[in-house]
Amino acid sequence: MSYGPLLFLGILFTLASSWVGLVLMPQRQLGALGQHTDTNTAAIYPQARGGEAQQGAEHYRALGCVYCHTQQVRPEGYGADIARGWGRRRTVSRDYIHDKPVMLGTMRTGPDLTNIGERQSDYSWHYKHLYNPQITSAGSVMPPYPFLFETRPIGPTGPSTNALALEGAFAPAAGHEVVPTLRARQLVEYLRSLKSSGDLPEAPLKKEEAQ
């Protein structure tokens, strides 16, 4: 005998169950999560990104940085994320409310970048690292991004102020300089904006750190 309709219903019901449970329920619980205002300091967290940094996020997405770098700090005692200095506290849902898309990542070929803006705020370090990671981190497997930079002859007024200070094997040909393009500048603004360190009730900083 045929039980086609029964099969059909079973197929629909089973997927409907997790569609309700893992799609609608998270949307109900977290879909309207907003910023938190600290009752003492009136500080609002998290803040939306500035325009330049937001443009940089688009380059981060397009170049596929997420495939080697996570943006999530696991809780203390679970893995060594906090011990490695990748964050002062675990990250929680509220940290990500402005992200489109959310780029949590699933692979750590390179280190976590949740708080790279706190850990490394030096512009020239970021530029050199993007131009060729071997300059700052010899032995890294991160690809160089020469196409985010322009190699051009030094003008009559001398080297540009934003030219990279490159030495040895990494230096451009004599009479030339390497300057970051707009995309490189935006990408570095994005990286410098990565900070998930607000003091939240659901993820408090340790007292001495929170001040």
Binding site: P26, Q27, L33, S93, V102
Partner: peptide, 19 residues
């Protein structure tokens, strides 16, 4: 619909993504 056409907020995206 939930991730690309009308993205949902924050980590709900991650939930839908891995679902």
């Amino acid at each position: 619909v939930m991730l690309i056409i009308e993205p949902v907020r924050g980590v709900v995206q991650a939930a839908v993504n891995w679902w």
